[in-house]
């Protein structure tokens, strides 16, 4: 899970696997996914309980739904 200067750099890197090209996105799109409540709520004092609550589970499901899938 790395950042690259451009799509061309990512495609040239040793870690690039064309089967996972759907996981190549502008950094702003990843920043949006990592803005989900499951990341924002980490500072709360009951985070593990919250993560296991219906609200936390729904947040996890919603975050996963935003992650791109293979075409």
């Amino acid at each position: 899970m790395n950042l690259f200067r451009s799509e061309e750099h990512a495609r040239r890197s040793a870690s690039f696997d064309p089967d996972w090209v759907h996981m190549l996105m502008p950094v702003a799109d990843w920043a949006d996914i990592f803005s989900s409540p499951m990341f924002r709520e980490r500072g709360r004092g009951d985070y593990i309980s919250w993560l296991r609550s219906p609200e936390g589970q729904a947040s996890t499901t919603a975050m996963r739904a935003k992650i791109p899938k293979p075409a």
């Binding site: 200067r5 750099h9 996972w20 996981m23 702003a28």
Partner: peptide, 15 residues
Amino acid sequence: SVTPPTMVGYSRSAV
């Protein structure tokens, strides 16, 4: 700011 503005993220495994 994003430098360079062409920056991307990539993973070859599930998040």
